[in-house]
């Protein structure tokens, strides 16, 4: 089953809030984590995001296109990155999620994938079960 691990954690608002050393340690931990997922053959993709100060949202909910600076929901913990993994079941996903470095300072949400788009096949794939 494919799961997306959604990494939520508080954003560091001001520059210099984290020491260079702490940032380097975090990067090294994420590097090790992605390599471990890849070595286990379960990693589909991984993405670490820029802070929400760099994000832009669009919507046509009101009928016309509204472009807004900032995130969809302004929350204390923001989406900071995501890992898509393909593992046997929730227990296995839980185990990997528990190893994500950011569980030390945030929350990892484990969301089962419904369908995913296969770019080489130009088609939706996967678990169409609901």
């Amino acid at each position: 089953m494919r799961y997306t691990l959604l990494l939520h954690y508080p954003e560091m608002m001001a520059d210099g809030q984290l020491s260079d050393e702490a940032i380097e340690q975090g990067q090294a931990a994420f590097n090790d984590y992605a390599k471990a997922l890849n070595a286990a053959g379960v990693l589909v993709s991984a993405e670490v995001l820029q802070p929400t100060s760099a994000t832009t949202s669009v919507s046509r909910k009101t009928g016309e296109l509204v472009v807004q600076d900032g995130p969809f929901a302004d929350t204390k913990e923001a989406l900071g990155g995501s890992f898509v993994i393909d593992v046997a079941d929730l227990d296995s996903a839980l185990e990997w999620a528990g190893d994500a470095p950011s569980v030390q300072w945030g929350t990892v949400e484990i969301r089962p994938g419904a369908t995913w788009f296969d770019t080489s096949a130009d088609a939706w794939q996967g678990d169409a079960r609901s």
Partner: peptide
């Protein structure tokens, strides 16, 4: 029950 299926909770002894 739907959650058991969709979340992929396995039928295993821990």
């Amino acid at each position: 029950k739907r959650r058991i299926k969709l979340a992929g909770i396995p039928f295993v002894v821990p």
